[in-house]
Amino acid sequence: MAVVFKRTEGLTETPFHYCPGCTHGVIHRLVGEVLEELGVLGDSIGVAPVGCSVLAYDYFNCDMHEAAHGRAPAVATGVKRVYPDSVVFTYQGDGDLASIGTAEIVHAAHRSENITAIFVNNAIYGMTGGQMAPTTLPGQKATTSPYGRDPKTTGMPLKVSEMLATIPGATFVERTSAHNPANIRKSKKAIKKAFEHQLAGKGFSIVEILSTCPTNWGLTPLESLKWLEENMLPYYPLGNFRNSEEVK
């Protein structure tokens, strides 16, 4: 019988711990598939974050390194400097990358560190129980913004891709979404381009993928996908922000 679908070699057999309807699992699979298709699994070293994907090191079928909250780009820098020919990536959420880890991501981009960052933005802190993130939308309720995020006291959400695209060293920056099959396919393409960018030695690449958090948003999985489409897409436009041949 012909195999029409199978687990990618890029992932281990360990079952995901993610909540029903969370798009982390899909994004993991996309990264795993890309690494497999590019034939680089044996040369890949991933850096796992702190947050919902803290256990990512158990899921990716390649060498993995834990990092403290926000520090994945620094850890990845250490690894990449030791093995410049290997494929090094970070997998980070928005609390990790856009809050506590802004210095590390900005300066990895600033040095045009030849690594790839997979940035999963679901506009909330997931693992710690739904606190407000820098990416939380205005009016969005979180446990630390129980009356909805008030831009007057907490500012407007941070647009990471747009910000990083202003850095000369951030040579590949793209925002995609995981809310429907068409966009999932686009996300995979972007992830593949980012890794190819790294393989070609073109410097720092990042793919920001808009993602859901049904549990902490207080919505069903389906409602979450709809909420993402209706609320996140208008504020976080999809598309490529940067694709340079080299640092300029």
Binding site: A67, A68, R71, A76, V79, V82
Partner: peptide
């Protein structure tokens, strides 16, 4: 902070 985490990555490698 970044420096020691780079050390962490390189030591791990």
């Amino acid at each position: 902070v970044a420096a020691i985490n780079m050390v962490y990555g390189a030591a791990g490698a």
